[in-house]
Amino acid sequence: MAITIKDVEHVAKLARLEFEENEILAFTEKLDAIVGYVEMLNAVDVENVDPTYHVLPVKNRFREDEIQASLERDAVLTNAPDRRGGCFRVPRVVE
């Protein structure tokens, strides 16, 4: 098995997700199947092939350094669950 319970727990922790034990077991199986499927690609010889980061045959898409209008603050805060003094207000997170 390529994917272990530990891997799933680790990834879940990084994604701040909590699961029951049976869910973790289920995910381990499912993820293992997925990774196993993708592993078929290992059969391909890629010795002289650059890694494909994007499938689009496009490079260097830039914009010029020009200022455009920003949103009004009320619009900025439209989706804020809570606000104060023009700021988004969230539970305190201390590193």
């Binding site: 350094d65 200022i67 920003s70 603050r73 023009g86």
Partner: peptide, 20 residues
């Protein structure tokens, strides 16, 4: 003059949440 991925100004300060 503008941000990394959009046209908002990079000017320091300004009223909070107005360069977004």
């Amino acid at each position: 003059a503008s941000k990394m991925f959009c046209g908002c100004t990079t000017t320091y300060g300004g009223d909070v949440n107005t360069h977004c």
